[in-house]
Design a protein around this nucleic acid. Structure first.
Lengths: 87, 87
DNA sequence: TCATAGGTTATGATATATCATAATAGTATC
DNA sequence: GATACTATTATGATATATCATAACCTATGA
């Protein structure tokens, strides 16, 4: 049996992350960008008046951040929101 | 007086959208992508079991969508979330 | 040992996103 | 005019994001 890349692409096009996978990936990416900027959760949270308990839950994929929360995180990290959702 | 592009860039780097501006821009972009796909609000909402009243509020910047809602909208439109937040 | 820093988890309170439904308005077509 | 399509707006109910605070854990270092 022969496998074609085009078939893999079609399969990929029909693959959607589950909600859980999405939130995990989003949180992991936020944590990654934060660490690249050498900031602690407290550093970030103090910049945008956000609770560390909140950020921790978001970075661990236990909480579903709002668009404005993502914007605030992006502002604090000096990146655009699209960098945070580049999963 | 001479204006330099570099100065404009610095000013831009320190410019943050207000929350209202951000939600307006996000909503307008979602509506733009949806129309590019020739989908009505109902088309989109029926795909992801979302209320049109909800989508209308998001597209008009009156509501602060969650990350999962943005993901669902992206799935329904066949684009990644980063396309929706490319403001 | 003790203290500190960084992160996680838990709790109750408050704000708000979403659901579900309905009413309204504009636009186009018959 | 009447009908259908699309979008907006309003309402009450429910789910949940965030706030505020506290306790806990781990690693590090004085």
């Amino acid at each position: 049996m022969i496998y074609h890349n085009s078939i893999l692409c079609i399969i990929w096009d029909f693959y959607f992350m589950t909600d859980e996978e999405f939130l995990k990936a989003l949180g992991a990416n936020i944590a990654k960008v934060r660490m690249e900027k050498s900031m602690s959760q407290q550093d970030l949270c103090s910049k945008i008046e956000m609770e560390t308990s909140n950020l921790s839950a978001i970075e661990n994929g236990r909480q579903n951040a709002t668009a404005l929360t993502l914007k605030k995180i992006g502002d604090a990290l000096g990146v655009e929101v699209k960098e945070l959702v580049r999963l």
